[in-house]
């Protein structure tokens, strides 16, 4: 079994214990205040991701400001991207402007890897470098990516970038490399540390609150409740990829 195929079950007791502890702490410390979201999801580096979690993101396009680019800037800073937007530059997240051709209704929304349950990039990757973690995060194993770019051909969201030139001063937590393909990782280095992705944090900091991140499998999480309450949209829903990123307002 290759190293990136994370075990699904090991470490379950530890996580249950942490979840229970966090829940008890919340009930004890702040009666009446429910602590949902991503607390208690942090894990040790040697602890495998769990399939009991399905990380997802809900983007409310009605709250996404057309002039704001904070999510993109935060992503670039967090992941060590230079922020250039030439045809050969990497963009892990971009703001997309859409306009209805009949009604002229307009929206702005961030577009990135949709972390599909059935990701075409993973299907087509010849070496298995493109893979989906047990918790639904789609990643590229930089050790076995041969740079064939077939995943970029297959991605319906144009979410992937190819590193066209040598990189310098990389972030230790975010390995990148010339000749490999890369994409949004949901800031996996932060999520595993019990933090939110950088884009979500930046959006909240700007008080737009257009991005909600959390565990879709946890009925008590904000995102699961929102997805249950409001009509949400998957981009290219016709492909039935069951994306981890959902949109509201389009």
């Amino acid at each position: 079994m290759s190293e990136h195929q994370f075990n699904q079950d090991a470490g379950q007791d530890r996580r249950d214990f942490l979840k229970t502890s966090a829940g008890l702490a919340g009930l004890t410390l702040a009666p009446g205040v429910l602590l949902y979201g991503i607390s208690a999801y942090g894990r040790a580096p040697d602890e495998p991701a769990s399939s009991e979690v399905r990380w997802g993101m809900l983007i409310d396009t009605t709250k996404c400001s057309s002039g704001c680019n904070d999510c993109v800037t935060a992503c670039n800073t967090e992941n060590g991207l230079d922020g250039k937007t030439g045809p050969q530059d990497s963009q892990w997240i971009r703001k997309v402007h859409i306009k209805d051709l009949q009604t002229s209704e307009q929206h702005d929304l961030p577009m990135m890897c949709q972390h599909c349950e059935h990701p075409p990039c993973v299907d087509v990757c010849p070496t298995g470098a493109s893979f989906k973690r047990a918790d639904g995060i789609v990643l590229v194993d930089r050790h076995i990516c041969i740079g064939c770019r077939y995943c970029m051909m297959a991605c319906p969201y144009k979410a992937r970038s190819f590193v066209h030139e040598p990189l310098h001063d990389q972030k230790p937590d975010v390995p990148r490399g010339k000749g490999c393909v890369e994409a949004c990782t949901f800031c996996v280095q932060r999520v595993d540390n019990d933090e939110q992705p950088a884009c979500v944090e930046a959006c909240n900091k700007a008080e737009h609150n257009a991005m909600l991140f959390g565990d879709l499998n946890n009925p008590a999480s904000d995102i699961a409740k929102a997805v249950k309450t409001y009509a949400t949209t998957e981009v290219r829903a016709d492909l039935r990829l069951n994306t981890g990123v959902r949109y509201q307002g389009i």
Binding site: S2, V122, D123, V124, C125, P126, T127, G128, A129, I144, C145, I146, G147, C148, R149, Y150, F162, V163, K178, G179, C180, V181
Partner: peptide
């Protein structure tokens, strides 16, 4: 033309059998 031509051995030893590209190899 591969981004990592030096990893030809990887391409020959790691197969994702769901990939038509791997079948091609």
């Amino acid at each position: 033309d591969l981004g990592r031509s030096d990893r030809l051995v990887v391409a020959m030893t790691h197969y994702n059998f769901k990939s038509i590209f791997a079948w091609n190899m």
